[in-house]
């Protein structure tokens, strides 16, 4: 197990090993999202209170899950990079940050769309949406800090520290926003409320969540692999690879 992880830490063997993982991952992502999406959007029963507008959760919930998971993963990758000096961890963190920011935006946008029929406005200072908005700012900060450094290694380390500081703060921010929301509650519906769902409603949701995670892993692996080639382009194994015509 440790030997395998150690091997995975070297860019070259990572590149070779993950080559076999990619096709099944992409296949799983596409299949799960297709099945879950069609089932959820077309066949699942409508909500007795919200009607068809509830179907937005099939996008909103997986995106929101992913937005938070990616931030945590990014912080863990930062920790691995700082403690064990595994550059691969930093490459992966750098590659997943824009995807995380994108997922946060998708969650925000779908929440806003859901707000139109439910609240009658595009934006409501709902606890969950507010937390999501703050998360988006945290992502932008990490990405901007990395880009602001002249030295790539310095930017990588700074972004790792900020991601770790952010991850410690996320629960505190969530707690404070929930507290703030209960003090000033204005909306009658909240996107955080989860009524009991029949299996025909939550099963497609589960498929969508799994599909989004598979998509995240597939995208991150694919982007990390091309980043490896870019950063190691002067190394011999990469040149040999190019000559072989891969």
């Amino acid at each position: 197990m440790w030997a395998f992880l150690h091997k995975l830490g070297s860019p070259r063997s990572f590149y070779a090993i993950t080559e076999r993982w990619l096709p099944p991952l992409w296949l799983a992502a596409v299949a799960l999202i297709l099945v879950g999406g069609v089932w959820g959007l077309a066949f699942a029963p409508a909500d007795y209170q919200q009607g068809n507008s509830f179907r937005i959760i099939y996008v909103h919930v997986p995106a929101a899950f992913l937005a938070q998971s990616i931030f945590v993963t990014m912080a863990v990758a930062g920790l691995v990079f700082m403690v064990w000096k595994i550059k691969l961890a930093d490459m992966a963190a750098a590659m997943m940050a824009p995807l995380g920011a994108g997922m946060t935006f998708v969650a925000l946008f779908s929440g806003a769309v859901w707000g139109v029929p439910t609240w009658g406005t595009w934006w409501q200072w709902d606890a969950r949406l507010t937390s999501m908005l703050i998360l988006l700012f945290l992502y932008i900060g990490v990405i901007a800090l990395r880009g602001a450094f002249a030295s790539r290694d310095g930017g990588a380390r700074a972004a790792s520290v900020l991601a770790m500081v952010g991850v410690i703060n996320i629960p505190i921010i969530k707690f404070s926003v929930d507290w703030w929301y209960t003090l000033h509650q204005t909306a009658s519906f909240s996107i955080t409320e989860k009524p009991a769902m029949p299996a025909s409603m939550w099963l497609p949701l589960l498929l969508m969540v799994l599909g989004f995670y598979a998509f995240f892993i597939a995208v991150t692996l694919t982007r990390t692999r091309s980043e490896i080639l870019r950063r190691e382009s002067s190394k011999r194994w990469v040149r040999e690879l190019i000559e072989e015509g891969h």
Partner: peptide
């Protein structure tokens, strides 16, 4: 940009 999101709990 880095610091303001982290200030929110204190503000609340």
């Amino acid at each position: 940009l880095l610091v303001l999101p982290l200030y929110i709990p204190v503000l609340v």
